[in-house]
Simulated scan of single mutants.
Amino acid sequence: MEQQESTARPLTEANDFGKFEHGCQHYRRRCKIRAPCCDQIFPCRHCHNEAMSSLSNPEDCHELVRQDVNQVVCLICNTEQQVAQVCSNCGVNMGEYYCDICKFYDDDTNKGQFHCEECGICRVGGRDNFFHCKKCGSCYSTNLYDNHSCVENSMKNFCPVCYEYLFDSIKGTRIMKCGHTMHMDCFSAMGEQNQFRCPICSKTVFDMSNSWRSLDEEIEAVAMPEVYQYEVSILCNDCNNTSNVRFHILGHKCSHCNSYNTRRISAPDDQ
């Protein structure tokens, strides 16, 4: 490794030198990382993963294991060195926030970064605002403590809309009433497309009470012709109960929970 001329500064001046002036679209930081998997230098692991996932040869595609990083390059003095918060040559803080386990640097501490021992990675949002759900296998906002449906390792799955791995995604996530999770922006987009069911279990994820009342009124107002006046068996996606109900072209209401999120499981006996 090429020897670098010392650019040491007084400690109080060096720590903040160049803060917020360097980094990438993902993080503001004053160093780059050398990826041990391919021996290339990148601004961060996300930049590495995006570059590697776009390679034409699928066999060359791979992701960086953050804990395996052991070399970084200071962006102030260009010294390559072992991972540490402070540059061994110029004394600058290469990241105002630094985690020695995740090899993670970030100058923007307003994100409230913290390392969760049980997740094994760094999270954002402030340690006091989150708790770790052992069954779900991830950190959730404290307002969900004892107030969410647990699904084992629900965060260690892919978003059912965009299929990005949720556990270490830098995007915000949403836990739905059924306990399954997806990105917040994917959840919003799903609502804008009038898709009210969980893509995984088909349970209702939005408040549909107004819609169900409207269906009640429409069904009451629209009588079915005599030829269609028969019963069908339905399964409710919300409560998992079965019912025998009068057929109607507009929908079938669960007799247990009053949801219209149902599906027919049998045809009429005489059809």
Rank of each mutant, 00 (worst) to 15 (best):
E2P: 11
Q3C: 06
E5S: 15
P10V: 12
A14Q: 13
F17N: 08
F17R: 13
K19Y: 05
F20I: 13
C24D: 09
R29Y: 02
R29D: 03
A35C: 15
P36K: 11
C37M: 07
C38V: 12
P43Y: 07
P43W: 07
H46F: 00
C47Q: 07
N49S: 10
E50H: 08
S53H: 01
L55P: 07
N57V: 03
N57A: 01
E59A: 14
C61K: 15
E63N: 11
L64V: 11
V65F: 12
V65K: 15
R66Y: 04
R66T: 09
R66P: 04
V69H: 09
Q71W: 10
V72D: 04
V73G: 04
C77R: 12
C77L: 11
V86T: 07
V86G: 02
C87I: 00
C87K: 03
C90I: 01
V92P: 02
V92L: 01
N93F: 06
G95A: 09
E96H: 01
C99I: 06
I101A: 02
C102L: 01
F104W: 01
D106S: 08
D108E: 04
F114Q: 03
C116I: 00
C119D: 08
I121M: 10
R123F: 00
R123I: 01
N129H: 05
H132W: 12
C133I: 00
C133F: 00
K134I: 13
T142R: 10
Y145E: 14
H148K: 15
S149W: 00
E152C: 10
N153E: 06
M155P: 11
M155N: 11
N157K: 14
N157I: 03
P160E: 15
P160H: 12
P160L: 11
C162T: 05
Y163V: 05
Y163D: 09
Y163F: 08
E164C: 12
F167E: 14
D168K: 07
K171N: 15
T173H: 14
T173S: 08
K177V: 12
C178L: 05
T181C: 15
C186G: 06
C186E: 02
A189E: 07
M190D: 04
M190K: 11
E192T: 06
Q195G: 11
F196E: 02
C198D: 02
C201N: 04
C201A: 03
M208L: 12
N210L: 12
N210F: 07
L215T: 13
D216I: 02
D216L: 06
D216T: 09
E218H: 11
E218G: 06
E218I: 08
I219H: 02
E220Y: 01
A221S: 13
A221D: 06
E226D: 07
Y228F: 14
E231H: 14
D238I: 01
C239V: 04
N240F: 10
N241I: 00
N244P: 08
N244M: 14
N244T: 12
H252A: 09
H252C: 07
S255V: 09
H256P: 03
H256S: 04
Y260K: 04
Y260N: 03
N261R: 13
T262I: 00
R263V: 09
R263C: 09
R264I: 00
P268S: 08
D269I: 01
Q271C: 03
Q271R: 05
